[in-house]
Design a protein around this nucleic acid. Structure first.
Lengths: 220, 220
DNA sequence: ACAATAATGTGAGATATCTCATATTTTTAA
DNA sequence: TTAAAAATATGAGATATCTCACATTATTGT
């Protein structure tokens, strides 16, 4: 991670105004920082003391289980807060966050924690963010319980395909969908067999959009 | 649902002071209300316009999937907020909440919504509540992905047993744990076979506390 | 350019979990 | 009090998903 200054800093501040998140002047407490692709923003098990607001980029939220399994809990896409729960709740150990692309964030030091925690403007925004997060996790949780991979994968292919082509890394997606690598490949093969997608060098091409949507929509 | 007045009302207000949740006088906006056992506090798919704070009681948070499966998402135990996400986010349809026992709540009408949404004291408490909710759901989600029923059931038996006896309704718990009734019974039978619990008329008695803890603790 | 590492792909056999059918017991409501 | 509804129980066969072993093909760092 490195901190941007001068022109780079002011350009981001202009492009992503954040003043209206707070009812006090946040600038003295704020840095613009950049994480390179693959860098860890939070280490699993650490006690972070910085609140980040991601402006540009994409990251993965991870946790490792006692049995060694790793869950890719979700993809984080700008804009969003990171480390907000630790701000509210002192000394809460955190999950791991690793960037997928170059990522630009505002970092806000906890030195203005007192100010933040009495700022209704900021707190209201945080409530909205947290409410949405809770709602999303609940949705994911219940969907995972109620539907087999066939449906969840169909939904995920719809979501992540670009120009009708799905080309995510299997190793990553099986962690995200919470199934084994083997099983993911089975179901992909099944989609090929059913002519829903076609495997080419460029990726899996969606050929039966309708059927895919049908499988996905059973979820909601 | 009925609203308590007079002596009943003031007794609850005394027993569960709530003034320090707000920086303005909430009393004019507040009712004390009681739901009978089995009553629905929120109907699934409705657009609630009341914020509740549960003082006493226990309820179940439900959702029904398109495929007809019902998920018992979680048990709600006092104290907690209900309808808070709908307060923040207009017109968000909600999940169903049904009481398990007689339940006493404060209800706060949305007529003071404007006041609530600029009240840092209240918002901060809401942030804490929502943050915890998000954290819990995330934990549940990842655990369900990473462990078979054997471990999750062991953890649940530990949690819900009273005086070493587990006696929840199977029909409910299988929805809660997200497995079929049949499978729940299989794993319970397996616990009996392994002499971890013993089935008697009074319920399933825990006889190998250590082994149960071992299975449960693999989760975390 | 090459060795190390990561990602892909596949088979085989095990296990976790589901669906459905059906019988019995308990609880609930009229 | 009795009939209906809910909860418990169990078998049998299917399906979803896992683990492990191993081979092949990219990707990456030096």
């Amino acid at each position: 991670m490195h901190i941007l200054t001068g022109r780079a800093r002011s350009d981001y501040l202009k492009k992503y105004p954040i003043d209206d998140f707070f009812s006090f002047d946040i600038q003295p407490y704020l840095e613009v920082c950049q994480f390179d692709k693959g860098e860890w923003i939070f280490q699993e098990g650490s006690f972070p003391d910085t609140l980040y607001y991601m402006l540009e980029g994409k990251a993965k939220l991870y946790m490792t289980h006692k049995n060694g399994k790793v869950s890719l809990i979700e993809y984080l896409k700008a804009p969003l807060f990171m480390g907000e729960i630790e701000l509210l709740n002192e000394a809460r150990y955190t999950k791991g966050i690793q960037t997928v692309t170059k990522t630009i964030c505002y970092s806000i030091t906890q030195s203005c924690k007192e100010k933040l925690l009495v700022d209704a403007l900021f707190l209201r925004r945080l409530c909205l963010f947290l409410g949405e997060k809770a709602t999303n996790m609940t949705a994911k949780y219940t969907q995972n319980q109620a539907y087999p991979l066939e449906n969840r994968l169909a939904a995920f292919i719809q979501l992540s395909a670009e120009q009708g082509i799905y080309k995510e890394k299997h190793t990553e997606i099986c962690e995200y969908l919470g199934v084994s690598y083997r099983h993911l490949l089975y179901v992909l093969a099944q989609f090929c067999e059913e002519q829903i997608v076609e495997k080419r060098k460029t990726g899996y091409h969606i050929i039966d959009k309708k059927r895919l949507a049908q499988l996905a929509q059973e979820i909601q």
